[in-house]
Design a protein around this nucleic acid. Structure first.
Lengths: 338, 338
DNA sequence: CTGAAAGCGCTTACAG
DNA sequence: CTGAAAGCGCTTACAG
């Protein structure tokens, strides 16, 4: 392989001069600089990443720690991953994808071996076992998903509480007074998926304030169970005029459920979901929905993380950013039929 | 950070002895070995990855190069990624996820900087611009997806030709004589998605042999266009009794299309798709389908790649593995109505 | 069975 | 404005 020594020889300078000419960390005469650049070009020199990391203690790599649970909705995950990976690259970093089941152990291993400059944690749980390890690590981290104790950590998430409240507000404003909310399955909550109850709590609070009758349910996360769930729930509440979905599988199943019941949205039922725009497009979901903003959350987390990595001044206060809900109106909400 | 020097001091031995005690590359007395191990344990020593890479020219990292095209069907991609990442980890490797648009440039950059020991290329196109770069690279690679010129490269893919032939065979055996095939959109083919015409060719050949009338179409890759496509196609061929889908979006759209037409499978139409089991489960697709085996292809590619990395004997012949089609019967095929 | 030393390819104080 | 040298933390011939 071609090293900086080869470049230096070809340019007729010392290795340190070649190095400085490339890094620009000290002034170099234009002629020397040009010769070095030409040598780099003709030899096709690229610095050895391991050697550079050893010398500088910087790897220009970020670790992305996902939690890929077989009973969760997989397709949504890719948006976060690509948001992180693409933004990292734009900022000059590569991404190490870590999919191990034991995220805490993986984080420790990768941190200790100094493979990366920082961590992005996806799908963060209420009491996430990765957090104590992250706090003890010398590298900074950014979370996508709000844990119970975010103290001192940079956190990015959709504001699920405001989302629940916003959904109720929106339907109430149209005249709805009886609404059903179908959430992710209970085991997601038990595993620490706090966003489920955060949205439900926000909805509950606002419903109480406005005198709206709200019925909340957990739904399955896969087919065909969720289809049956929806039928049962709609049977139970024949007078409800609004349906809120915090469950991608439910959203995917709803079109055929409605068709089977001879119902249409918004004529028979106003529907608001919570999923990504991309998801809606892929499956042609005709429901207005609060965008889960996966791509954007991933990107923001990376930006903040790189900020921390590159600013020695590590004393900046932790950044907690909850994105306000944005409704993508696809025409599935209207005033209830009189 | 704690280095092997610290371990050596704590154990009262030299750094080389500490290193050998850990690698096992030369015989060490049991007592010394124990002392080293205890020092490692109590100090919490983990080797510095950059230093090790520099010394050994091995990184224990694999690069995973995807092609994430906005107009392709995203959800299917994650299965390949996790197959690769999980299998890599099982074999002691981490995975660098590369999502840059210019895969050839990315491959060159990563290869030159010696960040990884090998490459897995996903979604390989007929004439893939990454291949010449890979062939010139010192690190080995494995492809998921069969290119036009696979010479010398390890390739893993579903046998799409056999899949097309198998689909026709299956329906013909049940008595079908007029069949429609809906493929991915034409632009996927133009971009090098050779699997589209490989399946179509296999189907065509077998249909001709068996005297089956086969109508082939490109369909859109997203909603709602593909729904309209399906309606138009079914309108055009009212006497067709079999439908083959090599297009995930079409499979996702078909349930509502059939419902809208008052049709059911297999009573009015026998249907065979080609998509992953996971995909079928998530969206409750009730169609028998040839499994696209994403997870397995990713895993096999990694196994072969690691084989190449770890066997100095680089002279093993290229490995071309086309997985035979396996039908997951979900009850959507039967004899046509008389 | 173990140690002292060289070397991997960089960067960066230290001198001039 | 430039060069010689030290050092990052490992591994592995070379000696004993």
């Amino acid at each position: 392989m071609v090293t900086i020594g080869d470049v230096a020889s070809a340019a007729g300078v010392s290795r340190s001069t070649a190095s400085y000419a490339l890094s620009g960390k000290r002034t170099i005469s234009p002629e020397v600089r040009l010769k070095v650049l030409q040598a780099v070009e003709s030899l096709g020199y690229t610095p050895n990443a391991g050697a550079r990391a050893l010398a500088t203690s910087q790897t220009r790599v970020l670790a992305l720690l996902g939690r890929f649970l077989s009973d969760e909705f997989a397709p949504a995950m890719l948006q976060y991953i690509l948001g992180v990976s693409n933004r990292a690259r734009e900022l000059g970093y590569d991404t190490l994808l870590v999919s191990e089941d034991d995220g805490a152990a993986a984080l420790k291993r990768i941190s200790d071996s100094r493979m990366v400059d920082g961590f992005v944690l996806l799908n963060v749980a209420e009491r996430d076992t990765r957090l104590p390890v992250l706090r003890a690590a010398p590298q900074p981290g950014a979370l996508v998903g709000l844990p119970g104790e975010p103290d001192g950590l940079d956190v990015f998430d959709l504001d699920f509480d405001a989302t629940g409240s916003f959904m109720i507000d929106t339907l109430h404003g149209l005249g709805h007074r009886e609404i059903v909310l179908v959430s992710q399955p209970e085991h997601v909550v038990e595993r620490g998926g706090a966003y489920v109850w955060r949205l439900a709590d926000g909805a509950r609070r606002r419903a109480d304030e406005l005198g709206v009758s709200l019925h909340t349910y957990f739904g399955s996360s896969s087919q065909p169970a969720i289809g049956a769930d929806l039928h049962r729930i709609l049977d139970t509440h024949p007078t409800a005029t609004g349906l809120l979905l915090n469950n991608e599988a439910a959203a995917a199943a709803l079109p055929s459920v409605l068709a089977a019941r001879g119902m249409t949205a918004p004529d028979d039922l106003s529907v608001i979901g919570r999923y990504s725009d991309d998801f809606a497009r892929t499956f042609s979901l005709p429901f207005s929905a609060v965008d889960s903003a996966a791509d954007e959350l991933g990107r923001r987390a990376v930006e903040q993380l790189v900020q921390r990595i590159e600013n020695r001044a590590d004393d900046a206060p932790a950044h907690l950013e909850l994105i306000a809900p944005v409704l993508h109106d696809r025409g599935s909400i209207a005033a209830p039929r009189p």
